[in-house]
Design a protein around this nucleic acid. Structure first.
Length: 474
RNA sequence: GUCAGGGUAGCUCAGCUGGUAGAGCACCACAUUCAUAACGUGGCGGUCGUGGGAUCGAAGCCCACCCCUGACACCA
C-alpha cells in the first residue's frame, strides 16, 4: 500500500489558533482525506513547538511548572483540530524527551559528522529584562522596546550550520522539482533568495540564556538547540526518527509539508540543507498557502478586524468554515474573510444550493415511497475529481463538485418531475438519487461531516423527507 | 531601492498564442411550489489602473507613470 505522509507547520504553542492556522489545517486535512479515500496509508502530523524561553517565564508567572503550562497550551491546539474535523494521526510535541530529543540529537550528530556544524561567536544586543536578543531594527531609539533600557552587547559562542555549502545543491533540487515548491510564485522567490547567496545560520543557544529549555546539544552541556534545528526535526521525530526506526522508514520522506508563506525559507532551504547534510531523504513537496486578510486589510488588533476562528465555527459550523476556506480562498494565494461574505455564501451555496437541492429530492423520493437500491456499497471518488485534484487546486476541485449541485438543481427545474407520477417518477428519480450519492462521496475530503450526513440519508434504500440541513441565518 | 505578482461590472473573479467584454453573488422584473419565499427565466450593471505607441484591429503586445501585495536571512 502506498504511504502518504503530510504535515502541517508546527505552531508555536503559546499563540492562539487564528484563521491562518484554520486554513492550513483544513487544507492539509482535505488533502489527507483525499489520499485516504484513494486507499493510501495516510499519516497526518501536526504538533507543537514548545522549547522556548517565553514558556518558562509564562509558567513562572502562573506559578506552575513548564510542563504543566505546555500541557495546557497543547490541549488547546488538540481541541482546535477536532472542532474543525481535522483527522490528526500524530500530534508531536517538541518538549517530549523520549520521542523528540533522541531524533534531533541523531540528526545533529549526522550533520556534525558531515562536518557541517561549527562553533562561532555571535554578537548581539541583549536585553537582560527580556532575556532575549534584539536586532537593531527592533530597538526603539536604541533602547529595548519593552523596558526602554539600553541593551547589552553580548558575545556568545554558538554552533552554526554550514548552509552555504549546500547552496548549489538546494538550488538544483528546487529547479528540477526534485523538491517541488508550489506555487511557482513562491518557488521563484526561493530561487532568487538562494541566488543572492546563502549564509550559515545559528542552531544553538547557551543553556543559561535558554534557561535549560530545549534539546541538549550532544557532547556540550553548555548549549541547547535553537528554534529551527529543533522545530523542523519534529517532522521526522513524530514518525519515529530516533525511537522507532521501522515506523520512520515506512513514512519518511514526507510527501508534503503544508506551510504558510512566512516560513518558506526554513522549509525550502534550511530543512533541505539539514537533510542533505545528514544524507537523509528529502520531502517531495512543499505546499505554500497564502495569508487571509479581512475586508482587504491585514488583520490587526488596532483596526479591529481580527477574525476569531471559534466565532466562525460557532456561527456557521465546522462544515461551512471548511467550505468557506476551501471554496472562497484561492488555494495557493492570499484570501479574505468577512462575516458578510460568509453570510452570503452560506445562504447562496449552503441553504439555497445544496440544502434546498437535497430537500426537494428527498421530498420527491418520499412521495413515491419506492426504494432506491444502492448500485454499489463502497463508492469511490469520481474520476473527474481525482483528475482535478492532482493539480492541487483545492478550490477548483471543490467547485467542480459543487457545479454538480447546481446542474442537478437546474435539471430538476427543467424536467419538472413533480408532474410525473408512480413508476414514471420513480424511474426518473433513480439517476437523480445516484447523482446525489456521487456528490456526497466527492464532498468527503472537503466537508466530511456534511458528506457523511448526505451519504447516510441518501445511502439508504428508502429515502424519507429531510429536515433543512442549513437553516437560514436569522 | 531591487525582484516577483496583481489592478476587468457594487463584490469575488474568468478572459491574456490580439478580433470589438464574460460567470457567480448582490439588485430589479417575471414565472413558480417538488423544495429552506428556495429553484427557473429575463434584465440592470464595465472609460478592462493612467497616458502614450506599433497594428486594419488590444483588456490582452511595447514604453512611461500611479496604486496594491509579497520576497530581499537568523523570524514566529
Amino acid at each position: 500500500m502506498n504511504t502518504f505522509y503530510i504535515t502541517t507547520a508546527i505552531p508555536y504553542v503559546n499563540g492562539k489558533p487564528h484563521i491562518g492556522h484554520t486554513l492550513e489545517f483544513v487544507q492539509t486535512d482535505t488533502i489527507a482525506r483525499f489520499h485516504r479515500l484513494l486507499g493510501e496509508d495516510v499519516v497526518l502530523l501536526t504538533g507543537s513547538d514548545e522549547n522556548s524561553l517565553k514558556n518558562v517565564r509564562a509558567a513562572e508567572k502562573e506559578g506552575i511548572t513548564t510542563k504543566e503550562l505546555l500541557d495546557k497550551y497543547t490541549a488547546v491546539w488538540k481541541a482546535f483540530g477536532s472542532t474543525l474535523d481535522i483527522k490528526v494521526d500524530i500530534f508531536q510535541r517538541s518538549f517530549n524527551p523520549e520521542t523528540h530529543f533522541p531524533g534531533v540529537q541523531k540528526l545533529w550528530e549526522l550533520c556534525d559528522k558531515a562536518g557541517d556544524i561549527y562553533k562561532k561567536s555571535y554578537t548581539g544586543l541583549y536585553c537582560v529584562g527580556c532575556e532575549q536578543f534584539y536586532k537593531e531594527s527592533e530597538l526603539k531609539d536604541g533602547l529595548c522596546p519593552q523596558h526602554l533600557t539600553p541593551p547589552e552587547v553580548v558575545n556568545e559562542e554558538n554552533y552554526f550550520f554550514k548552509l552555504s555549502r549546500y547552496q548549489n545543491e538546494i538550488k538544483e533540487l528546487i529547479e528540477s522539482d526534485t523538491v517541488q515548491v508550489i506555487p511557482t510564485k513562491i518557488r521563484k522567490e526561493v530561487l532568487s533568495f538562494i541566488e543572492s547567496g546563502l549564509e550559515d545560520f545559528s542552531i544553538s543557544r547557551s543553556v543559561e540564556r535558554a534557561r535549560g529549555v530545549g534539546v541538549p546539544v550532544p557532547n556540550d552541556p553548555k548549549q541547547v538547540m535553537y528554534v529551527w534545528f529543533d522545530a523542523l526535526a519534529i517532522y521526522m521525530t513524530g514518525i519515529g526518527y530516533g525511537w522507532d526506526e521501522e515506523k520512520w522508514q515506512k513514512y519518511w520522506p514526507a510527501n508534503m509539508h503544508v506551510i504558510g508563506k512566512d516560513i518558506v525559507r526554513f522549509h525550502a532551504i534550511y530543512w533541505i540543507g539539514m537533510l542533505l547534510s545528514a544524507k537523509l531523504p528529502l520531502p517531495k513537496t512543499i505546499f505554500v498557502h497564502g495569508h487571509i486578510a479581512s475586508g482587504g486589510q491585514k488583520m490587526s488588533k488596532s483596526i479591529g478586524n481580527v477574525i476569531d476562528p471559534y466565532e466562525v465555527i460557532g456561527k456557521y459550523g465546522a462544515d461551512f468554515t471548511r467550505f468557506y476556506l476551501l471554496y472562497e480562498v484561492p488555494t495557493l494565494d492570499d484570501g479574505d474573510f468577512t462575516f458578510s461574505r460568509a453570510d452570503e455564501l452560506y445562504t447562496s451555496e449552503f441553504a439555497n444550493g445544496l440544502g434546498n437541492l437535497v430537500s426537494r429530492v428527498a421530498a420527491l423520493c418520499a412521495k413515491t415511497g419506492i426504494t432506491y437500491p444502492l448500485t454499489t456499497t463502497n463508492r469511490s471518488l469520481s474520476t473527474e475529481l481525482i483528475d482535478s485534484f492532482t493539480a492541487l487546486d483545492l478550490r477548483e476541485s471543490l467547485r467542480l463538485v459543487w457545479k454538480r449541485v447546481w446542474d442537478l438543481n437546474k435539471k430538476l427545474s427543467d424536467d419538472e418531475p413533480w408532474k410525473k407520477e408512480g413508476d414514471e417518477l420513480a424511474t426518473y428519480l433513480a439517476p437523480v438519487v445516484e447523482e446525489i450519492r456521487v456528490i456526497a462521496t466527492d464532498l468527503q475530503p472537503f466537508v466530511p461531516t456534511l458528506a457523511g450526513k448526505l451519504g447516510e440519508h441518501f445511502g439508504s434504500e428508502k429515502i424519507e423527507k429531510i429536515a433543512p440541513l442549513f437553516p437560514k441565518l436569522t
